[in-house]
């Protein structure tokens, strides 16, 4: 039986023995493009680093798989996107009481939405976006400091030693905030069991409805009547509301105490009403300014005019006397 593998023929053996590479130059149909010389920036500065991570998952200084890292991100996003938030203390509420309070709150807010639509405003459906959320105070205060005191877009250039990342969990954010000794005015509030009520816009009408449900006080924020919302008067909901304690509010980055919160909630007619008041005030100021500015000109006009009439009278008087003299002379 002949061997399975044939010995190479002479021609092939000579090719295999040959040290010279066979055809090291390939032929292309198109002419090879001439590579342009590197630009001046590339010669001096080098090419930019290739990013080694997906754009949606930048490396993070704090371990991203921990719940508290994700809570920090979530709180920072809540703080950045929420212009109006109320801070309550909740003292051992039961889950049934929470359910009742959330139900009554959403009902009252939906009523406000419907009233606004009926009054001719475009429908916004803010009621679905207004949420009660319990928070972890330590992580929340850390997120608050990052949001308030770490502004990477305002710094002229990034740290050359850093990795150029500026997100909430980045090393730059951590170092910028851990170095600050500043105490945020909201910081003393952030201890104990807290719950946030977050509003996506500053809407005094919704705030008023929420306050009259969660922290009713007689003249300005009356509790809903038994007929309007019988559910609010359930013993379960009532027990829960007694245990909620309004501490303060954060409105557009400013901190308000209970009185300030009530003042914001008591703005008549919501933001539209406030705008109307401002427009009326500016108009009256404008009228006043034009009156004042005009009055100087008018005064000058009247003075000059009276002087002119006086001079004319004098001139007339003088001319009539002169004519008398002339007649006498004749």
């Amino acid at each position: 039986m002949p061997p399975r593998i044939q010995p190479p023929s002479k021609a092939i053996a000579s090719i295999l023995r040959c040290r010279r590479p066979l055809r090291n130059q390939r032929q292309y149909a198109t002419a090879a493009a001439i590579t342009p010389a590197a630009s001046h920036e590339q010669m001096t500065g080098g090419s930019p680093a290739i990013s080694r991570f997906p754009a949606t998952q930048p490396p993070s200084y704090k371990p991203p798989e921990f719940r508290k890292s994700q809570l920090l991100r979530q709180y920072a996003s809540v703080l950045r996107s929420t212009p109006l938030m109320l801070i309550f203390q909740h003292n051992n509420l039961k889950s049934t009481e929470w359910i009742g309070i959330r139900r009554e709150l959403s009902l009252a807010l939906k009523k406000v939405d419907q009233a606004r639509v009926a009054a001719g405003f475009p429908p916004e459906n803010l009621a679905d976006a207004i949420k009660l959320q319990t928070i972890q105070t330590g992580i929340f205060s850390s997120a608050l400091r990052i949001v308030e005191y770490y502004k990477p877009e305002k710094q002229p250039q990034a740290d050359p030693n850093g990795d150029g990342l500026t997100h909430v969990l980045s090393k730059a954010a951590h170092e910028a905030v851990s170095a600050t000794k500043k105490v945020h005015p909201l910081a003393p509030l952030l201890s104990g069991p807290l719950v946030l009520l977050t509003f996506p816009t500053v809407s005094p009408q919704h705030l008023k409805a929420a306050l009259s449900i969660l922290a009713p006080s007689a003249p300005q924020f009356p509790p809903p009547t038994r007929r309007a919302s019988p559910g609010w008067h359930d013993p379960g909901v009532q027990a829960g509301i007694q245990k909620l304690l309004l501490l303060g509010a954060r409105v557009e980055g400013n901190v308000f105490d209970v009185e300030g919160t009530k003042w914001v909630g008591s703005i008549e007619g919501g933001l539209e009403g406030l705008r109307g008041q401002l427009v009326a005030m500016l108009q009256s100021i404008g009228a006043g300014v034009t009156n004042t500015l005009e009055s100087a000109g008018k005064n000058l006009y009247f003075t000059v005019e009276s002087r002119r009439t006086m001079l004319e009278d004098e001139a007339k008087g003088g001319s009539s006397e002169g004519s008398k003299k002339e007649s006498k002379a004749e």
Partner: peptide, 10 residues
Amino acid sequence: RLFLSFLPPD
């Protein structure tokens, strides 16, 4: 505030 939160739910 913590004293208030130490009181039982009922």
